[in-house]
Design a protein around this nucleic acid. Structure first.
Lengths: 216, 216
DNA sequence: TCCATATTGTTAATTTTTTGTCAAATCAGT
DNA sequence: ACTGATTTGACAAAAAATTAACAATATGGA
């Protein structure tokens, strides 16, 4: 039923989906059962028109004169995002950032399952993070031989990222969530990289603060 | 000299600035002294036209027939971003994520200076992160009375964020870098919030992985 | 059942963003 | 100093994204 129109969905629309999902989740938790695009628009700061247009990329989830059922829209968007998958995922780097990511993300609710953590620091190897034992990075090949790994999370220094990406590519891993302060670029077009640049976000904050002061 | 045109700069342009800064930093580190928009375009995956247009929002930094001086363009963009400031900043929350942020970000190079860390967990209070002693969150008012705080970083649970934001607003803090899985919304329009939603990024990765599989 | 109200899905208009083009300017070699 | 190759900055064109408008349809109460 959800197989509606499959023209390519634009990047801005895709980036708004998790936001819809988040707000609908909050409404659901509050026990709200129905909502109109107008009400959502007030809450989220998008226009009602945009919300309707975004949703219509994927199907017709609302009902004229009524609006949307919070629960079923929440589920639909979750499904569109693919959160009902359970992609097997490993984490590379068990430093502060790696641990924070491992502990804070509820991977299971986001379509992923964390099945291994690797580091090359002998101090960390053998320790436990979120019930997973940190393994020597040298054992990556062995591990990937035994387990089908769908995605890898990079919480390693910039200098190490590209090399490890190469190893993982050879092991069949094609999807990367990258925190390494470095734009992972891979020549193969079957690879998906989601780069997270916390520094960029911080610099944007700096820009906005600076401009604010200049204007006043 | 940099006071060129101050029509409002669009959000997409602003979000690309840190990226330029990053790539130019890498070129600088490699000892490259000059670069053309075309060469940058090959490296970064934007069109040359876009790069020139973006830069021209702020001034004329290039020279016809030559291109741009890597070093001076790097410095100009750093200045545009406001990285030569030193905004006094506090971190709220010294858990895994807070520690990771404190340790990984070179605030000094990004226009900020970390001057305090707060938590309400007695286990953490008194411990040291990056040479800063973690202080009781109850002492926030005292601290802000003694120190002018420009910005605050939120690494606290969703449930705590909004309340702490209110306290900080009353203490005169107007700028927030928010990791709390919650869109901080403040009614006052002198407030700047940069929300970081790691979950959103993860969900986008999930979407892209899912679509990839569907298409093939 | 009927009517006034609400709200969607869709198409059209508008706005914003990106890309293409080119004259003017600089550079490098002779 | 002259010439051909580059490359910018500016403007024009194209593409993309957002907003507006509205017919079609459902709701809820009389």
């Amino acid at each position: 039923m959800a197989m509606h129109k499959y023209e390519k969905i634009s990047v801005p629309v895709i980036r708004r989906l998790p936001r819809y999902y988040r707000f609908l989740g909050e409404l659901l938790a509050k026990g709200v059962t129905r909502i109109s695009s107008r009400q959502l628009s007030d809450k989220m700061g998008f226009t009602a028109s945009q919300i309707r247009q975004d949703l219509n990329c994927f199907g017709e989830f609302g009902q004229q004169g009524y609006g949307y059922s919070v629960e079923s829209l929440y589920n639909e968007i979750g499904h569109i995002l693919g959160l009902d998958h359970s992609y097997k995922t490993i984490l590379i780097g068990a430093g502060n950032l790696g641990k924070a990511v491992a502990v804070h993300m509820s991977f299971e609710k986001r379509g992923f399952q964390l099945i291994g953590i690797f580091d090359n620091d002998s101090q960390k190897i053998g320790s436990t993070v979120r019930d997973i034992v940190v393994t020597d990075l040298d054992d990556l090949e062995t591990f990937c031989g035994k387990n089908k790994v769908d995605a890898a999370i990079f919480c390693v220094p910039k200098s190490a990222a590209q090399k490890i990406a190469g190893r993982l590519y050879n092991l069949g891993v094609r999807n990367y969530w990258n925190f390494s302060h470095y734009d992972l670029t891979v020549d193969y077009d079957d690879v998906i990289v989601e780069n997270v640049h916390l520094n960029d976000s911080l610099m944007v904050l700096c820009y906005r603060m600076t401009k604010e002061y200049e204007e006043t």
